[in-house]
Design a protein around this nucleic acid. Sequence first.
DNA 1: TTCGCCATGTAATAGGTTACATGATTGC
DNA 2: GCAATCATGTAACCTATTACATGGCGAA
Lengths: 190, 190
Amino acid sequence: MNGNLTPTSYLVLGLVRMNGPSTPYDLKQAVARSIGHFWSFPHSQLYTEPARLAGLGLLREEREESGRRRRRFHLTDQGASALSGWMREPTPGNTEAHDLGLLKLFLGVMDSAEQVRAMAERQADDHQAQLAEYEAADAELAADPDVAACRAALHLGMRYERVAVEFWRDVAANPPGPVPAAETPEPTSA
Amino acid sequence: MNGNLTPTSYLVLGLVRMNGPSTPYDLKQAVARSIGHFWSFPHSQLYTEPARLAGLGLLREEREESGRRRRRFHLTDQGASALSGWMREPTPGNTEAHDLGLLKLFLGVMDSAEQVRAMAERQADDHQAQLAEYEAADAELAADPDVAACRAALHLGMRYERVAVEFWRDVAANPPGPVPAAETPEPTSA
DNA sequence: TTCGCCATGTAATAGGTTACATGATTGC
DNA sequence: GCAATCATGTAACCTATTACATGGCGAA
């Protein structure tokens, strides 16, 4: 077992701290409702990671004896201090924005401006839909003053989405032509 | 060897198409100058992925006999059509925005509003710096009409950065308080 | 001509992803 | 009581990341 903590680790620790003792399924739900919108964590990780953290003493595992025999994880002192230690560290590294639509646009392999326009319109719609989801999620949290920080994070998501919608609409309105190939592809020899 | 193509694969194919026959080092450079700003690809991948693609017949490998014995990869017909096939597919999946600062904010584990403010200011500065880099990169490309698509992608990056700067400045100006822990951590038993 | 950085790669590992698989609940 | 879905997990694979390692090349 490797003792290094990844973003996933801190996510799990943080969620347990925020929501109290949690089962992996609880974590999965919490992620889906909030940060999962822009940073996806597959559920299998949310099952394996807490177990790993328990092995490191940062969580304590408790298991139901009957029914679903859920594993419920509790934050330990050590876990709490690992978490607040991380908070105190500087936060290096830029934002990673992985967006396949953007990659396609960047590579400039679209055959025609028309094809670019079609994709851009699709992207704009998708981002619009995403924005609506954020707004709904945010409205649900609006009542609770304790979660101001969570909402703040959502707000950045919302701003990004608005920018993305604007951006793709601009692209659709004025699609760039294809980047010409620098060489003629060769007959495949394989 | 697995024939599935990942975003990395298309990146490599697309760069070779755009820039002509390339060595892994060329790819590394091209990435660092452009898309690497918001989607990082470690250099080791840019060495192994072209080899894999060559194995699939999508690139052809040519090796220098003397000196550094570079491997230079050429696009094949098959590679070109894999690339344009991908372009025609719809682009599912949302943007993944991995940002550790945002994760920290979201988890609400900061001890105090003051700590939040300090981080927010740092983030704002970092994003400001990033924005400046994009602008410089964009200015370099401005002369060449062939790379309009690449520039368009950069422009989204720039918009994101502006939003991020604004956002973190707002957070710094009005930092949310910490989300209270839902449970008291337990003494570690390990 | 030597030093240092640029350039080129590879090995090992672990985290992430997909796919499978099954038991528990709940609603009808 | 049956079906559908929720909930819970695990195993295998692979991609990505880190770390190491070395030879070429240019500058002083």
